[in-house]
């Protein structure tokens, strides 16, 4: 990237947009984890409702942010290229499959819901990656980071629910350990790529400000606690609970920081000088793809 100037903070997406990534991502992953944990059965209604509650809360928060909230149905008009349209479409199917799956006690529907929860999370990662105006978001390494943290949060939330209901699962805690390791690696790689691509210094500073709490309190400590539980299963309830809470909160902190504090705009720059009449790339001309309706 060239030496840019004017890398100010974007102000269009605030805590409400961040809330969609925080809670929506956790909810989608919770559906997936619940589907895996209960297979070949189905999770109970409470788990399904909690998961959908998280997704619904995220979507509600982002709905509060849009300028014309009563036109929300227009969000479905551009599945050809918009990851926001795809996320919204997946969320509708996710609600339908999860609700019908737990109400009708149908494992196949829950399996589909789990897959949709995973897709919902993937869409969130791609929404950020498509944001070319924000160097900290368009970095391709953001997608595995969003995926890994979302899955870790989902596993953490499911473990919390199971521990409270007195049915903590050791394999789920092992899975969480693996996801935390993946999240740590993704986080490290993401920051490395941003630095290598000369992302705005202020963006890197914002990320660095949460590095220590995220790595130590959000990943290393939960891993240590879970390892202790693996050796001494009698301590599952207090230690695993604390580990899951820390892992989930840390994921939310991470996403909140990426959306609201590390989102410095591209800025301006002088480009590389060229000479001669340029080679003209024709417009991609997507006008024919537009949704047209009768406004009368």
């Amino acid at each position: 990237m060239q030496n840019t100037f004017g890398n100010t903070q974007q102000t269009q997406w605030d805590w409400r947009a961040a809330g969609n990534f925080m809670f929506g991502g956790s909810g989608g992953a919770l559906v997936l984890m619940a589907a895996i944990a209960s297979w070949p059965g189905v999770p109970n209604l409470v788990v399904g409702l909690v998961a959908l509650g998280f997704v619904g809360l995220g979507l509600f928060l982002v709905w509060l942010e849009i300028g014309r909230p009563w036109r929300f149905l227009h969000v479905f008009f551009h599945p050809q290229t918009s990851w926001m349209t795809r996320e919204a479409s997946v969320s509708v199917l996710l609600f339908a499959a999860t609700l019908s799956g737990v109400l009708l006690q149908t494992p196949a529907l829950l399996a589909a819901a789990g897959l949709l929860g995973f897709l919902f999370l993937y869409c969130q990662g791609r929404i950020l990656r498509a944001s070319k105006g924000i160097p900290a978001w368009r970095e391709p390494a953001v997608t595995p980071l969003i995926m890994s943290t979302g899955l870790a949060e989902g596993a953490g939330l499911l473990s919390i629910l199971l521990i409270f209901s007195g049915a903590g699962e050791m394999w789920l805690l092992y899975l969480l350990m693996g996801l935390l390791a993946w999240r740590l690696a993704s986080w490290s790689y993401y920051k490395q790529r941003l630095a290598a691509n000369n992302a705005p210094a202020a963006a890197l500073q914002a990320l660095d400000s949460v590095n220590r709490p995220h790595v130590i309190l959000g990943n290393a400590l939960p891993l240590l606690l879970l390892l202790t539980v693996a050796v001494m299963p009698d301590l599952l309830q207090p230690l695993a609970l604390l580990a899951c809470i820390l892992a989930t909160l840390s994921g939310w902190l991470l996403k909140f920081t990426i959306i609201t504090r590390a989102a410095k705009v591209q800025g301006y720059a002088l480009g590389k000088l060229q000479q001669g009449r340029p080679t003209i790339k024709p417009p991609v001309r997507r006008e024919k793809d537009r949704f047209v309706f009768d406004r009368d």
Binding site: R68, P69, S82
Partner: peptide, 10 residues
């Protein structure tokens, strides 16, 4: 048509 989501802005 615009819903004011500001995705274009970012």
């Amino acid at each position: 048509l615009c819903i004011g989501c500001s995705y274009c802005t970012v």
